Simulated scan of single mutants.
Amino acid sequence: MRPTGGSVAAFVAGVTPAKRRRDAETLTALMQEISGREPELWGTIVGFGSCHYRYPTGTEGDMPLLAFAPRKAASTIYLESTAAHADDLAALGPHTTGVGCLYIKDLEEIDLEALSGILTASLRWAEDGGSEHAVLTVTG
Rank of each mutant, 00 (worst) to 15 (best):
G47I: 12
K19L: 14
S50Y: 04
A24K: 09
I45P: 04
P17H: 11
D23C: 10
I45L: 15
A29D: 10
K19P: 01
K19D: 02
S35F: 06
A29S: 12
G36F: 07
A18M: 00
S35E: 07
G49W: 04
E25D: 09
I45Q: 09
G49C: 11
S35N: 09
E25Q: 15
P17M: 11
A24S: 13
G49M: 07
V15K: 05
E33M: 04
T28S: 10
R21G: 06
E33C: 02
Y53D: 09
E33L: 02
C51V: 00
K19Y: 00
D23F: 04
R22A: 15
I34C: 01
E38F: 03
T16Y: 11
P17S: 13
R20Y: 07
E40C: 02
Y53Q: 03
V12D: 03
E40Y: 02
Y53G: 06
V46D: 03
E38I: 00
E40M: 14
S50T: 12
R21S: 05
R37E: 06
K19G: 02
R22Q: 12
A18W: 00
M31V: 01
R37Q: 13
P56N: 12
W42I: 07
H52E: 13
E38R: 14
V46G: 01
V46M: 00
T28W: 05
L30Q: 06
